[in-house]
Simulated assay, not measured.
Amino acid sequence: MISSTFERMREAMQLSAEKPDPALLPTPRQLRRSTIAAVIGAAFIGVCVYMPAEYGIDPTGVGGVLGLTEMGEIKQQLAREAAEDELIHGGGEQSSRLVDDIFGLFAGAAHAQEAWVDTVTFSLAPGAATEIKLVMAAGDVAEYEWVATGGRINFDLHAHGDGQSIDYDRGRGATEGQGSIEAPFPGEHGWFWRNRDDANVTVTLQLRGAYSDVVRSE
């Protein structure tokens, strides 16, 4: 008898533990309210926090107040720069060809900008001489480069004009030269060449810069 009484009491306690009190359970209306509140909260976080912080988009202005919009704009800028770097440095053979083409265009433009304007070529027999002069104004700057083939040559780079004269450079038995002339006064600035070798010498002189004329005299 006592055993059966205890058995019934234990079963009653199990049933009480398995079946919650209906009064403690949320009603369907409460569940709907909780769901709507969760959706509104998630939307608020997405619009006011996530979008400004990740994309720099701030339709409400809250992100700007919290300093999140600036952070999102920085992230987007970094992402754009990474994409541009990938376009330039990545992408395999096609991107490499694109980069090569771009650098080729720049190199071609730089070469065109630096091209020589005038080229003067002359030959001197043994013992012969000639002069090549640039007509320049005060302050003009001209660049030059020359090479002698077939032998060596002597030169005297000087200027005269406006009652003044100046020696820039001299050479004996030279085969090449390069540099620039900055005219301190107006006049003719250039070279006196003489072939002291035993064979004919050909000189090719390239010029560019500020000068009005190239004059040759024997």
Rank of each mutant, 00 (worst) to 15 (best):
P59L: 07
A128M: 02
V99A: 15
E182H: 08
S95P: 04
W116S: 05
E84D: 12
T5K: 08
G161R: 00
V117S: 15
D58C: 01
Q94L: 15
D100T: 15
F103W: 14
G56M: 03
T60H: 03
I40K: 14
D58V: 04
F155T: 02
A37V: 06
E131M: 08
Y168G: 03
Q94W: 08
G67V: 05
E188L: 10
Q76C: 06
A17S: 06
G64Y: 11
Y50F: 14
R216F: 00
G173L: 08
T119D: 03
V39W: 08
G92Y: 13
Y55S: 12
G92E: 02
S165F: 10
A210F: 09
H189D: 03
E143S: 06
G177F: 01
A115T: 13
L98S: 09
I166D: 12
M51C: 12
M1V: 06
Q113C: 05
E86L: 12
F6H: 00
V214R: 05
Q14A: 07
D85S: 08
A138K: 11
L205N: 04
R172S: 10
V147N: 10
A115G: 06
A129N: 12
D169C: 01
A138R: 04
A128R: 07
A148Q: 00
R97Y: 14
Q164I: 00
F106I: 11
Y50Q: 14
A107H: 09
T35F: 13
V215F: 06
G150M: 07
R216Q: 11
E182G: 05
A112N: 13
I153H: 01
D101W: 08
K19T: 12
V49L: 15
D101E: 14
V49F: 11
M13E: 01
G104M: 05
F192P: 05
I74C: 05
G108W: 05
A138T: 03
I74N: 11
I153V: 03
E182V: 11
R97M: 07
A174G: 03
I88C: 09
S180C: 09
G90A: 04
W193V: 02
L105Y: 11
T27D: 05
I36Q: 12
S95C: 13
M9C: 02
K75H: 11
T130R: 13
S95F: 06
D100F: 10
Q14K: 02
S165Y: 12
D156K: 13
L66V: 03
P126N: 04
I181P: 07
I74E: 15
Y55I: 05
V203W: 03
W116D: 10
V201M: 07
T175P: 10
M71A: 15
Q77E: 07
Q113M: 10
L124H: 06
E176S: 12
A38R: 10
R172E: 14
T130C: 11
T202F: 08
D162H: 04
V201E: 05
S212I: 07
W191Y: 02
I88E: 15
D156P: 03
F44C: 12
I132R: 03
R97W: 14
M13D: 02
R10D: 01
G187S: 03
Y168W: 04
E93W: 15
S165H: 09
E86Q: 15
G108Q: 07
R32D: 14
D197R: 00
I57N: 08
A79W: 04
G108A: 14
H111D: 15
A138S: 09
A129Y: 13
R194S: 13
G67Y: 09
R216Y: 07
Q206A: 14
E84M: 11
